[in-house]
Design a protein around this nucleic acid. Sequence first.
DNA 1: CCCCAAGATTTTTTT
DNA 2: AATCTTGGGG
Length: 777
Amino acid sequence: MPAEPQRLAPSAGGPITSQLGRRGPDYLQGLNEEQRDAVLTIDGPLLVLAGAGTGKTRVLTTRIAHILSTRKARGSEILAVTFTNKAAREMKERIASLVGSSVEGMPWLGTFHSIGARILRRHAELVDLKPAFTILDTDDQIRLIKQLLEAENIDEKRWPARQFAGMLDDWKNRGLLPRDVTPAESGFYANGKGAKLYADYQARLKTLNAADFGDLLLECIRLFRENPKVLEEYHQRFKYMLVDEYQDSNVAQYLWLRLLAQGRPANEANICVVGDDDQSIYGWRGAEVDNILRFEKDFPGAKVIRLERNYRSTANILAAASHLIAHNEGRLGKTLHTDVAEKGETVAVTSVWDSEEEARQIGEEIEQFQRQGETLNSMAILVRASFQMREFEERFITLGLNYRVIGGPRFYERKEIRDALAYFRLVAQPADDLAFERIVNTPKRGLGDSTLKILFDAARHQNVPLLSATRMLIETEELKSKQRTTLRDLVGQFDDWSERLRTIPHAELAEQILDESGYTAMWQNDKSADSPGRLENLKELVRSMEEFETMGGFLEHVALVMDRDSFEADDAVSIMTLHSAKGLEFNTVFLPGWEEGLFPHQRSLDESGRAGLEEERRLAYVGITRGRKRVRISLAQNRRIHGLWQSAIPSRFLDELPAEVVEVKDTGSSYGGYGYGGRTANRFQSVDPFESVYETPGWQRARAQQAQRKGSGPLTIEGELVARSVDLGPGSGYKVGDRVFHNKFGYGEIAALEGNKLTIDFQTGRKKVLDSFIRKA
DNA sequence: CCCCAAGATTTTTTT
DNA sequence: AATCTTGGGG
């Protein structure tokens, strides 16, 4: 956070400990009292509630520097977990600049998933894997599920693989093994086959010598539980534990941490968690804000430090953010304040005709700020959903404005990259059937469904990987001679490559593989417009491999990081989602698309009702607090969704901004503005917040299933209350079966409930209403 | 077995 | 609007 007024004096590298006298070591200079307290309180459990821009990362990194320089522990004895790769990278850099040396000495600083993978590889055999196991991404996962569905004769139309993948994710996030999943939860899917599918899926992963994202934590937990000695080893190793963004941790991560912390009595655990309940934006991924709320219960006597002094934003920006977030009920409550007397610019809210004009408008403003001497690097556009990015990109290309998309379409998700990776994966790990399937006939080798079927059958029959099955089949008469020859050549090539992996550098081998397999030629012969780009990407891929020591190391990076480090060299405007903006800051922040349905997102409201709305609001809070000097919000009156134009309603969040810091602008081309501050104040109260724009049968079915699945009480594991949803006020107080009265629909009976959102059977039919519209009959 | 054309479908956010 | 899927013909 370069904006903090107090800068770190780069440590001179000398024995800092000797300075621990009057004024303390250099790295403590410029910390405020609370920050210093958080850095120096090293022993025992500590919870740091750090609001946006209060120097959270600085505290964490300085704390590590402090532990190191007081020789309380070595780098290899500190476990420091973050949520994202970006955060991990930043921490590494900042520690390095504090301590002066490389961070190679901190092997256990990383994301939950990368550390989980690291631990699993060390003890792979104990969880039925081999150390070189493959980490599957979502795409592989879906393909695998599809195969299982087919094997079980389940109609994928009726029970989409995606849906099951979502369920799997949910279970794994909650730390549930197949045997822990109750029939109530899995039962509805595919007529009760849910739990069995989960078990089959796990078994299949073991055969493939593969783990999915969830397994990186879940299997770790199993490892620790089933092997106390292994766990003991880590208890010995980790003298200090630090966790960043604790509000984003899910149940599995919570259990994982708790196991690791069990080396000492709870009140003496050297665990420090840092978080901000107002920035919890990953509920959809299973994050439990309650983890942070119950920290003091888990670790009795934990010290709690609040960081409330904001070093980032102007008073006006803080006022806007605080006022907005105050509309949330489920929060611990912090008040950010700044010492700077100057209020700064007002927050601009601009209403435009459509998203095209929005892009044009923002483009103009950017150029204007640029003329005033602002760098493009200091500006960012933060969108709710990634489809919004395109319009900006198009506009900026015509303007010739440099931009950079962060977290956009992932490099490693491109088809050509995934194909190439499949080749590499198969060379590194011959049991990787998913990789095999992907590339047997890419480029086209004349191996179609019928041939593949033979391979599949043989593999399943003999219970061996596809590559081995192929190896055997080419010695028989079962295949047509043409296919047999093709496969023989292919298997021969793979043998060759595996051999060479031991002798030549992996990046060089990668190039050879792509050439010899005909993959490069395939794109060279392709005359579509994007094939040159694809070839360029392949080159880039090979180039980036050189940065890794081994093929395995590279593949691990690809699976876990999913994205290249973005080059920061050029001056460019950043375009990214609000989610990926967390932790960053910019002088100028543009927040487009503040319209009902988009932000707050309809889906969030549909799925999680009030809690979803609060999460959206936190997302808005995150967005606003990214700005240092200026925040500019905009909304379009018309937006195109799936090709259809829809007129949009201004976001309710606009009404939640304090009028005194907001300046409403309206471009000439719009009709009537949106009536901020009086003209049509509170016009949104009449809007049904749960009216969905998705009214396809499939969507409604999904929603119905969701309703069944959720609301099954607080989260418990092994009979113990692990986390419960934030109690949003007194609750509805209704239960299924209650008789109720509604002014418009009359008497009815509650069929289902989810938060304050009730499904009620009235005489006129089934309706969804909010509890505030009904009373007990 | 491959290719093309018509038809269906569209998950926000990410490790 | 754009992309993926599916089905029929070559």
